[in-house]
Computed example of a mutant assay.
Amino acid sequence: MAVKVFVTGVTGYVGGTVFDYVYNAHKDYEYTVLVRDEARAQLVKAKYPTVEVASGALEDTDVIEKAAAEADIVIHTADSSDHAISARAIAKGLKDGHTAEKPGYWLHLSGTAILTWYDQVNNRAGEGPHPEYIYNDLDGVDRMLSFPDDGIHRDVDKIIQGAASDAVKPTIICPPLIYGKGSGVGNQTSVQLPYLIEAGLSDGYVPVVKPGKTEWDHVDVHSLADLYVKLVDATQDPSKNSNPEIFGIRGFFFAASGTHSFLQLAEKVVSEIKKQGYSNKVTVKQYSLAELRELKGDNLIISTYAFSSRGEAQRAKKYLGWEPKGMSLAEGVTETVDILAKAKGL
Rank of each mutant, 00 (worst) to 15 (best):
E127Q: 11
Q42G: 14
Q120S: 06
L109T: 15
T50H: 13
G97C: 01
A71W: 09
R40W: 02
S80E: 11
Y105T: 08
V121Y: 12
G56L: 02
A87Q: 03
G97N: 01
E30Q: 15
E101Q: 06
A125S: 02
P129K: 00
Y23I: 10
K27Q: 15
T32S: 13
T112D: 02
H76Y: 14
T61R: 11
E65W: 10
N123R: 01
R124A: 12
V51D: 00
R40Q: 13
K102C: 01
K102Q: 10
L58G: 04
G111D: 05
S110N: 06
A68F: 08
T32W: 09
V74R: 07
I73L: 09
A46T: 12
A39L: 04
A41H: 08
R36M: 08
A91R: 07
N122G: 02
R124I: 03
E30D: 15
K27R: 15
K45M: 06
Q42A: 14
V53K: 05
R40L: 04
Y23S: 10
L94Y: 09
I90H: 10
Y31S: 10
Q120F: 02
Y105S: 09
V51K: 10
D119L: 02
D28Q: 15
K95H: 10
I75V: 14
V74W: 08
A67N: 03
A57S: 15
A69N: 01
A54G: 06
S80Y: 12
Y118T: 07
A69D: 00
E65Q: 15
A39D: 05
T112P: 00
H26M: 01
L94S: 05
Y31F: 15
Y31Q: 10
S80H: 08
I75Y: 11
V121M: 14
D79P: 04
I85G: 08
N24P: 07
H98G: 00
G128C: 05
H76G: 09
T32L: 04
N123M: 01
Y31A: 09
Q120I: 08
I85A: 13
T116E: 10
G97V: 01
T61F: 05
A84K: 13
V53F: 03
G126L: 00
A54N: 05
K95P: 01
E38I: 12
K47E: 01
D37N: 15
D37Q: 10
G111S: 09
V74E: 09
I64Y: 06
D119P: 02
T112H: 00
G111P: 02
H26N: 08
L43Q: 14
A69M: 03
E52T: 15
I75W: 09
G128R: 04
W106N: 12
I75G: 08
D62S: 14
K92Y: 04
P103H: 03
V51R: 10
W106Y: 15
Y105G: 09
I114E: 13
Q42I: 05
K92N: 11
W106E: 14
S55Q: 14
D96M: 04
R40V: 02
D72P: 05
K66M: 01
Q120D: 04
G104F: 07
V63Q: 05
I85K: 12
H26R: 11
V53N: 08
G128S: 12
L109G: 04
A84T: 13
E30N: 15
I114M: 12
A71F: 09
V53D: 03
D82T: 12
D60W: 04
S110G: 04
K102N: 11
